[in-house]
Structures are given as structure tokens and as C-alpha cells.
Amino acid sequence: MDFFTFDEDRVVEGYVAGGVTTYRFALDHLAPLIGRLNIQRDTLKTKFYSRLEKDIVRGCVMPPITVALIHDFEEGAAAVAVNDHIRAHIDEGFVLDGIQRLNTLARASQSAGFDDARPLHVNFVIARSRDRLLYRMITLNNGQRPMSARHQIEVLADSFFDFDSVDLKLVAEKGKSRVRAPDSFKKSDFIKGYIAYLSETVNVDNQKIIEEKLDELIASRIIESDIPTRRIEFSDIVNLINRMSASEYLSEWIRVQNNFIGFCVGAKQSIPALQEAQYAEMEGAIQSFEQAFASINVSKVNLGKVRRELVSKFIEHFDTLKSVDEFELLDKISDWI
């Protein structure tokens, strides 16, 4: 891999490097990265890329592939250090752009006359954190097709989060049935919480809005958010939820989808207070909230929507509301509805 461009991205606190390699290197090291994404666009039918497949064998130069890596370099990192990191950790990357081209390249490599020494240009995006990389992707791709902002988040969230160091258990849904795992999070719920966190809104699956417009709304909210400047990462919230799992009551409460989504949005503003709270203090606060919430006239509201919004508000102001009683909290809730 030879590098010929290097620039600093001051927004995502990362770097962008451009290089050139060979088809053989791409087949050995880049094509296998596609398998790291469990949720991704399906490989298009061969006929759509049959012309490119033939052109590869004939000697065309494909448009650059884009690969992402996550690493927190010190400010002012030298190009040689970034380039060396890419070479050493290429197998940990994610293909952001070029999945179909790499699949086509793999098919072309089986054809007579294929030259694996031909050049392939590659762009590398190295971001300091997962949140910043997602922000960069969405600002670059919003409004384009075929991958929506929500799909981009689903793709990366499914691959980014390594839960080996935490006690959270994620299970995927099989078909349309719900998986019965009382001590686990559904992966789809977790991703909704992540989208809510990024977009700072609990309205991440509003059935009253056309899906395409909802995607645009979520993307616009993410672009307008403070992701590049804030110091809190979603991993901080994951660690907090992991800590809550030690309490049976809190663990059961946070696994309710609407509670989880509201919590992910509200916790961004109150991480220090939540981290300092003892189990008994947090349990008591949540119990008071639930007692106040039980007084809502369910026939007058959309209960799921209201629960998300109120949990978000309560968690956002946890430091000032953690000690109030049921009726004082009910008065506050009545102002929020």
C-alpha cells in the first residue's frame, strides 16, 4: 500500500489518507472486511455489474474504495504514524463505500486474463470515535441513495460495539417473532436507542411519518447535533446501562424499549449525576417517576410516545428531580405533557 495524500479532519478529530494498492491486496485484505458487517445492503444481482466485471478483466481502473478505521491519535499525528497504523490494522477496517465493487472484483478474479497486479485506489477515513465516524458518513451521504441515515447507523452499530467487556446481552429477532430473553436487549431496540442518542429525539420510528421523510428528519437532526464538539460518547451511556444491570429492578426497567430510548436521549445531559448516583438512589427516583407516570390518563395520550418523552425529560433533569416525591414529580410531568 503506497500513500500519496494525507489530511487532518478537524471536525471528527481524525485523518483522511489516500493510497493505491493492487487488486491482489484488495482481494486478500479488503474484500474480507465486507463480512464484518452483519447488517448491510444485499449484494446486487450479477447482471447489474457484469459490465464492470468484464472491464476489470480488460484493464479498467475502478473508482476508489473507502475504508474506515477508528483510532484516537494524539493531536498533530504525523502522516507516517497514521499510514503505519493503517497498514498494521487494515483487517480491523469497515468498507464504507465499494461493497459492490469489491464483490465484482472477486468475481472478475475468477476469469481468464485477470491481472491481480492492476492498481486499486483506496481512501481511508480514521476517526477518533464511532460517533464521529457516523457523523461524517451522514453529512457526506445524506440525500443520496440507496443507503439511508438509519441504515448507515444500523450497519455500523452492528459491527462497532464490542460487548465483551460489559454484561449487556444483545439478541437478534428471528423473522418477525419476538425473542424471549428476559435478561437481554433486543438488538433492534438497542440500535433505536443509538439512533435516538445521535439525533437527540425519541421520534425514531414514528409510523405517522413517511419512512423516507423520517430518514431525512433523523439525518438532519444528527447533522445539527453537537457530536463533533461534545466529550460524551455513546459508550459512556452503554457503560452506565451496564452498571445499572447490577440492580434487578433497574435492569428490568431499562430493557423496556420506550424507557431505553428515552434514557439514551436524556442521559446525554446528565451523565455525571447518573454516574455518581447509588443504586438505591436511582431505584428510588425511578420508582417515584413510575408512580407519577401511573397517574396519567392513558385514554388521553399516546402512551408509548409520552413514556419516551417523559423518561427523556426525567433523566435529563435527574440531578434536580431524583429526590422529589410522587406528587411534585406529577406536577412537573403535567407541564411536560
Rank of each mutant, 00 (worst) to 15 (best):
Y194T: 08
H29I: 04
R307E: 15
D183K: 00
D158N: 11
E281C: 09
V11N: 04
C60T: 15
D325H: 01
M244W: 14
A196I: 09
I296R: 02
Y23A: 13
H151P: 00
F161E: 11
A246E: 15
I232K: 00
E328R: 06
L140A: 12
L133W: 04
G113K: 03
D7E: 11
V238S: 03
A78Y: 03
K208P: 02
D205Q: 15
T139S: 07
S184Q: 04
T201C: 00
F163K: 00
R178L: 02
N142C: 01
V67F: 06
R24N: 14
L27R: 08
F25I: 06
G59Y: 07
V306Y: 12
F6S: 09
I218A: 11
D91L: 01
I286F: 13
F161G: 08
D42R: 02
R230V: 10
G19E: 14
A106E: 15
R118V: 11
V311M: 04
A26Y: 01
E211I: 08
L214Q: 12
V298Q: 12
N259F: 06
I261M: 01
Y194C: 05
K187V: 09
A285C: 13
S177F: 10
I315R: 05
H89N: 13
E252H: 08
W336T: 05
E276F: 01
V16E: 13
E248Q: 04
D72H: 08
A280T: 13
Q152A: 06
L133S: 06
E173V: 01
N38Q: 07
F124E: 09
N203M: 04
D226I: 01
F94W: 14
V265W: 07
K313H: 12
L69P: 06
V256T: 12
N259R: 11
A78R: 09
L96H: 14
F318R: 00
I271Y: 12
I223Q: 15
I209G: 00
I337Y: 07
T139K: 11
L30S: 08
K213Y: 08
Q278D: 15
I241E: 11
S188V: 13
G175Q: 06
A285E: 12
I241R: 02
V20W: 03
I39S: 13
